[in-house]
Write a protein that binds this DNA or RNA. Structure first.
Lengths: 321, 321
DNA sequence: CTGAAAGCGCTTACAG
DNA sequence: CTGAAAGCGCTTACAG
């Protein structure tokens, strides 16, 4: 493997000059920079990241942190994020390091080790939970991080997210206008994630513009009896804006089981289901995870603006099916 | 951040001795090793991976390579693998680096850079394709790698896999014995992946032990007309061993659409669907991806046996639902 | 059983 | 515009 020493020797230059030329240092003449780069590429020179990182006291890596408790179906979303993140990272000659584990302690140790041993200074969290120990750690370390999903009210840090109020409103309007739903409800999870609150807000906003009464139902995680009871108590519902595909499909299937012949349209979010699994009455909003991943990296590498505004990027969603 | 120099100074030892003690070098007395480790931990010493890697000419990282073209539903499987891989890596003080991209060229560049710039010497491929350029590259480099999924006939390299012949046979027997299927068929994808061939072989083996005639159907990727035609031509089928959950569910849903009142049981593989999406007639074989990930790492770090046998590990599957 | 020294391949403050 | 030198924090061959 050729090193900058080899290049220097071959060109009769010093190691310093070669290093500076390769890094496009202004102090080196354009002519020399060009020559050095040409020779370097001819010799098949590849920089040694470990050496560079040792000198820079900083790794050219971004730590990507997975949530501990997630539903398997969400993994589709995470891999989409990974794709977008890595695309942006490779173009910056950065590397993607993953922190994933089965307990908060494991992940926390993983991240600590990335900071102190691997000297990683930038992180992307694929989630945004309140009181998350990893986030608490990162906030008190000299590192930068971005979360996917905005922080809960009262908290502030850089993030990338969709406009979930708009996404909720769009889903509601789709049901009202395109599928002529008379009684669309909003179905949420018991977790109260920030994105659900926003989608619900969008739903409420649209409903309030009509003469309808809003109906919110929290779908329990395990037990289906409460869900069945709700459906029986509300036989008139003909549309559902669900907080995510999982919640939506769960409700949709119970509804169809109880009322096989009633028509109902459902809007979910994440586009996480293969088309084979859903029919023309199930609609999903694509949140464009790859774009969100790219945006997260861009935010992470953005120069400080100095403004007090929290840096963030809103990625547009779109309808699928 | 404390370094081994700081420890050496504080203890009145040389840097060499501290380094050796921390690495449990036999040449250092047990007493000294213990003392050094105690002081190191008291001082909050954390090794600098970049320095170590530079000296060792090898990164303490494993490159994990995602396939380029994959169905979104498979992402569930990949994240399970990641969990298992990282669990084994952290206990070895290794780091997980991801290579993922939208084209073979991107991924190939990513892996090349991992080898030459990041000095990564060990890789896990989350797939095992024939004539894959990444595999071809790795075979001709001084690196070790393991694939998830066994190589196609004629190829040889270390891998981790399930016993897919047995998994196919087990699925078939489940239909025959537990659900009393009279006419179970085997449904495969048009891709002819090695694992499908094996599952099909298991199906054929079980069927041949009865007086039934085997039926194999290749489910086309896009077009549903051939699928519908097949179902109409075979109204008697009452069981399906499908090459994966995706193929199985596709067939199941078309079948139920055409014959809502006929009972049919389906066995798929990967356990990739949330329970809400399936009913008691859909059964999935859990391939234990996290265990496969762990096994892959163990294989990667196993000392060379010297035997000509190809190293591999077979992870047991189990039934879900 | 322990140490002094060289070296891994870079970057950069200092000097000219 | 270019160079000599120090240093990043480790490991290990060589010496005793």
């Amino acid at each position: 493997m050729a090193t900058i020493r080899d290049i220097a020797k071959k060109m009769g230059l010093s190691v310093s000059t070669v290093s500076r030329a390769l890094n496009d240092n202004q102090r080196i003449s354009i002519r020399t920079r060009k020559r050095v780069k040409r020779i370097a590429s001819e010799m098949g020179y590849q920089p040694n990241y470990n050496a560079r990182n040792l000198t820079n006291r900083e790794a050219n890596a971004v730590g990507v942190v997975f949530p501990v408790n997630n539903r398997v179906i969400d993994n589709i979303f995470y891999v989409g994020l990974l794709r977008g993140i890595n695309e942006e990272l490779t173009s910056r000659n950065y590397v993607l390091s993953v922190a994933i584990g089965n307990s908060t302690e494991q992940v926390l140790e993983n991240v600590k080790s990335m900071i102190t041993r691997a000297q990683i200074k930038r992180f992307i969290l694929l989630y945004s939970h309140i009181n998350d120990p990893v986030i608490e750690l990162l906030r008190h370390q000299p590192v930068d991080f971005v979360t996917v999903g905005k922080p809960a009210a009262g908290q502030k840090w850089p993030y990338v997210d969709n406009n979930n109020v708009k996404a909720g409103a769009d889903g509601t309007r789709l049901l009202l206008n395109n599928y002529h739903a008379e009684h669309p409800i909003f179905a949420e999870s018991p977790n109260g994630w920030p994105y659900e609150l926003d989608r619900r807000e969008g739903y409420l906003r649209e409903i309030s513009q009509t003469d309808r009464k809003p109906v919110i139902f929290s779908v329990p995680d395990q037990d289906n009896t409460a869900l069945d009871q709700f459906i029986k108590d509300h036989p008139q519902i003909d549309g559902v804006v669900a907080t995510d595909d999982y919640t939506g499909l769960k409700l949709y299937r119970r509804f169809k089981t109880l009322y096989p012949n009633k028509e109902i349209n459902v809007v979910g979010y994440n586009n996480s289901l293969p088309n084979e699994l859903i029919d023309q009455h199930f609609h999903s909003v694509d949140l464009h995870p790859a774009e969100m991943g790219q945006a997260a990296v861009q935010l992470l590498f953005e120069k400080e603006t100095g403004s007090a505004r929290v840096k963030h990027t809103i990625v547009a969603h779109s309808f699928f099916n």
